[in-house]
């Protein structure tokens, strides 16, 4: 009887949890298919090589228009760079500082403590340079799209077959351009047809072409490879604590399982004389 009650409680928990996930309502259009990610699941961690390659893609392709303003140069330690490499990386960029004693803002070389400088001084300049479309800051994009950031639970009441996470969406978007819009779909000359972008008409031209980046580690730079790597990198920018979080989670849950078992044994012992 006790077992049934505990089990039904567990079922209710999972039931409501799964139904709570129904906020992941399907966006208009097909959902991006799930990809394999090294950081997925309870034992997932970031693949540092993929992070470095993804950073290369961001730096050489995306950074021209898309900011990454929540990431500081010092954060790149996570990618495996040492202090000197980070200083060298930062010194390639200039940031605005000031006002100085004359009351003027000035440019200076970036230091590791600085954040990634935006390609445009403000949102209006960004829109102006891109035909009215605003290239989003990408720091949190994988938590702000599709099913959100990395999640060990991938089903919900609305989508019992599973929902895509932000990284799947980014990969799908980057690889989901069609040369021609399907029959009957009206699309402006300044826009492109994308399978996974909500509404399908996206102002960004396909950013990735075969070999548009030459990887430092020699991996062939196919569109699929670059999309996968940059999606991994962008998951890291949104969730830099992932490795630590899952590591600590394993220790906490193992501790709790052992401790709860001890509590249960103690409970049975104390209640024994009543039965």
């Amino acid at each position: 009887m006790q077992m049934i009650k505990t089990l039904s409680a567990a079922v209710v928990v999972i039931g409501i949890a799964v139904s709570a996930g129904n906020v992941h309502a399907a966006a208009k259009g097909p959902k991006a298919p799930a990809q394999d990610w090294s950081f997925q699941g309870i034992f997932g961690t970031y693949d540092q090589a993929a992070l470095q390659r993804g950073f290369q893609v961001y730096k050489n392709v995306c950074a021209a228009c898309h900011g990454l303003s929540r990431i500081a140069f010092r954060n790149f330690e996570d990618l495996g760079y040492n202090e000197d490499e980070i200083k060298a990386l930062a010194s390639e960029y200039e940031v605005t500082d000031g006002p100085n004693e004359e009351g003027e803002m000035f440019e200076r070389t970036a230091i590791p403590a600085d954040r990634w400088p935006s390609p445009f001084p403000n949102k209006q300049a960004a829109q102006f340079a891109n035909g009215g479309a605003y290239p989003l800051d990408l720091s949190l994009i994988t938590k702000a799209r599709a099913g959100g950031g990395d999640s060990a639970i991938r089903v919900s009441m609305l989508q019992p077959t599973g929902f895509p996470i932000g990284a799947d969406y980014v990969y799908g978007l980057l690889t989901g351009y069609l040369d021609e819009a399907p029959e009957g779909f009206e699309i402006a000359d300044t826009q492109y047809y994308n399978k996974y972008y909500p509404g399908h008409a996206i102002s960004m031209a396909p950013p990735l072409y075969e070999d548009s980046v030459e990887y430092a580690d020699g991996t062939p730079a196919t569109v699929s490879q670059m999309a996968h790597d940059v999606a991994t990198f962008l998951t890291w920018t949104a969730e830099p604590e992932l490795n630590e979080r899952k590591n600590l989670g394993m220790k906490v849950i193992l501790f709790l399982i052992i401790f709860t078992a001890m509590l249960y044994a103690l409970k049975r012992k104390i209640w024994a004389d009543l039965h």
């Binding site: 052992i258 401790f259 509590l263 044994a265 012992k269």
Partner: peptide
């Protein structure tokens, strides 16, 4: 004795946690 050992080991683990 068994109950006391279980009690004190649980308390110790709980305190550490």
């Amino acid at each position: 004795t068994r109950r006391d050992f279980l009690l004190w080991s649980t308390v110790a683990v709980g305190a550490a946690g």
